[in-house]
Amino acid sequence: MSFLSLSTDPVTEAYPDQPLAVSVDSTVGEVIELMRAQRGSCVLVCADDDCQGKVLGIFTERDALRWMAQGAAAQIGIRDWMTANPTVIDAKSSVGSAIQAMSAGGYRHLPIVDETGTPKSVISVRGLVHYLVDHFPNTIYTLPPEPGKTYDREGA
């Protein structure tokens, strides 16, 4: 039986995803088609495609929605629609501090970076839920259909 240790478990326990990365010279149209094809919910925007060095920006479903609502052109640069200088988190941070940073900023994604600031993965709300479900398997998976009701067994 495992117990929840939000303040000691590193953030890498919460099922980080491999990030989709694009160059800052891409267009919004290219990026959201990539998101659809890869079923991704966010992309990191870097100086070049292999994403060494600092993250310049993040582009999420929410930014895509803003772009759609405004009916802007697909050829417009991602630079104009990304969220620049996103909040990032160190790989050694705890799950608890990640949850705090996400709820304080209203983020659904946080890039995890190494010492040089190069993004290694992205932690998402979905990963956090997976982590929580993992840590309460007894609580979550063995719930009787209507808790509090007693059941008579039938048959052998």
């Binding site: 149209g29 959201i32 088609e33 659809r36 479903e61 895509a64 759609m68 697909a74």
Partner: peptide
Amino acid sequence: DALMRLNV
């Protein structure tokens, strides 16, 4: 749904 069905 917006991302998957509307997209570009």
